[in-house]
C-alpha cells in the first residue's frame, strides 16, 4: 500500500491538532504505520496552522511535500487557498467555507480575499459548513469532528473505529455531541445514513 497523506489546515485554536490525532489513531488501529507532524508554538496564537498525517505500510517522512497531498481538509477558506498547491492533481479537497479574517484584513490594512469559493470550486472542492453544522449538533466547538466525518467518507477505515477513537479522545462530557457531529459530517460528504 502506498503512503496516503492527509493535510489538515486552519487557524490556531480551531482544533486541527485533535483532529489529526484522531485520524492518526484510527490509522494505527487499522494496523498501519502512521506518522503525524505538526508545529505548535507561536502560530497557535491565531496564526496559520497545519497538521500532516501520513499512513501506509511503512511511512518514512512525517512531512508531506507540496503537490503530494491526497486529502486536503481546510477548516477555513483562506487557508484552503493558501495550502492548495500542496494538493496533488486528483486529490480530495474539503473546505469549511467560513472565513476567519487574518489581522491585516481585520484592521483594514489589506482587503479580504475575494472569489475564493469559486476558485476552490474550480479545483473540485467539497464545501462542508462545519461550524454551522456543529452548532446544530449542539456543540459549536466540534466543527473539527464534523470535518473528520466528511474526511472519513473518503478513507478506508470503518465508521465504528472512528467512533471508538473519537469517544476515547474528546472530553467525556462532549462524547455524544461529537459523535453526532461526526455523523452529520459523514452525511454532508454524501454518506447516506448512520452506518
Amino acid at each position: 500500500m502506498r503512503t496516503t497523506s492527509v493535510l489538515l489546515v486552519g487557524v490556531g485554536g480551531q482544533g486541527t491538532i485533535l483532529a489529526g490525532d484522531v485520524l492518526a489513531k484510527v490509522a494505527a488501529a487499522a494496523g498501519l504505520d502512521v506518522k503525524l507532524s505538526e508545529v505548535h508554538g507561536m502560530s497557535q496564537r491565531g496564526g496559520s496552522v497545519d497538521t500532516m498525517v501520513r499512513f501506509g505500510e511503512r511511512v518514512f517522512s512525517p512531512v508531506v511535500s507540496s503537490g503530494e497531498v491526497d486529502h486536503l481538509v481546510a477548516f477555513e477558506i483562506t487557508e484552503a487557498a493558501r495550502w492548495l498547491a500542496y494538493l496533488r492533481p486528483g486529490g480530495r479537497l474539503l473546505v469549511d467555507p467560513r472565513m476567519i479574517a487574518p489581522l491585516p484584513v481585520l484592521t483594514g490594512a489589506l482587503p479580504a480575499p475575494a472569489g475564493l469559493e469559486a476558485a476552490l470550486e474550480a479545483e473540485g472542492a467539497l464545501f462542508v459548513d462545519a461550524g454551522k453544522i456543529a452548532c446544530r449538533a449542539g456543540s459549536p466547538r466540534s466543527a473539527n469532528v464534523v470535518l473528520l466525518g466528511a474526511l472519513s467518507v473518503g478513507l478506508p477505515f470503518s465508521a465504528s473505529v472512528w467512533r471508538e477513537v473519537i469517544a476515547a479522545r474528546v472530553p467525556p462530557k462532549t462524547v455524544d455531541a461529537n459523535l453526532a457531529a461526526f455523523e452529520l459530517g459523514r452525511r454532508a460528504a454524501g454518506e447516506g445514513g448512520a452506518a
Binding site: 507540496s66 492533481p89 487574518p102 491585516p104
Partner: peptide, 20 residues
C-alpha cells in the same frame, strides 16, 4: 523533475500570529 502541480492562488493576506 517537479510533479505536475496546481497553481497556487495569488494575493492571499498573510496570517501572522496575534495576541488573543
Amino acid at each position: 523533475r517537479p510533479p505536475a502541480a496546481r497553481e497556487p492562488l495569488e494575493g492571499l493576506p498573510p496570517r501572522p500570529p496575534m495576541l488573543c
